[in-house]
Amino acid sequence: MAEVLLQVDNLVKNFGGVRATDDLTLDVRAGEVHALIGPNGAGKTTFIGQLMGEIVPDAGAIRFAGSPLGGLDTPARVRLGIARTFQITQLLDEDTALSNVALTIQAQQGHSFRFWKTAAGDASLFGPAQTYLAAAGLAERGNVLVRDLSHGEHKQLELAMALASEPRLLLLDEPMAGLGASESRQMVDSLKRLKGRTAILLVEHDMDAVFALADRISVLVYGKVIATGTPADIQANSQVRVAYLGEGDA
């Protein structure tokens, strides 16, 4: 069995009176795709925020590759090898898709206190950027301004940018949300090609995608993991069915 890359123990986060994360324990092993499913409002995005250091948990511990992440800010975690995509895409709208990825590579290469040499023609940025775009299925769309791309392409660009920081752990926040059938299939294909290269925590509502990709699935309800197991285990789990049926969601 592969080593544990991400270990989350007893994580708690309250917002006012609402317990968004409730004693959450979960692990992601190197190279696996671990899907996190659950009804809307289960606290999935809040959980990702805490993994990235955007939200500070009230209690509990997060360890990445054996060392605790507590107190590290987002850029520090990115440098350790964690990357995320945003459910509500966060892209540089006025730039081209290619230069969005190129900027990510630039950030990956170290500090950017370089004031003189022009960045636009830098082969060490734009060469690899094209590769990552291609990996996310956007090979032909590099020179299009982000604001002129479709919603599905935004999702693909999110993926390309996350890949460009060469993460050991990739946190995907609903990469299929709002995609059409063919776009979803393309995204699943892109993710399948990643399998084994990097560990993935996949937050997703699209069950077809989840069952196509996941090695393990955890079910999050009201901030609590109620079950973890292989796709087959989860499908057979009556508690999960109740939780889902009770919420009237799928």
Partner: peptide
């Protein structure tokens, strides 16, 4: 036009994205 300038433009457009890039 430099790398520094690219970061500034990134900051204007989405500071959250810049943090997620590790900046």
């Amino acid at each position: 036009g430099s790398r520094f300038g690219r970061v500034l433009e990134g900051i204007r457009q989405s500071e959250r994205r810049m943090a997620a890039m590790g900046v």
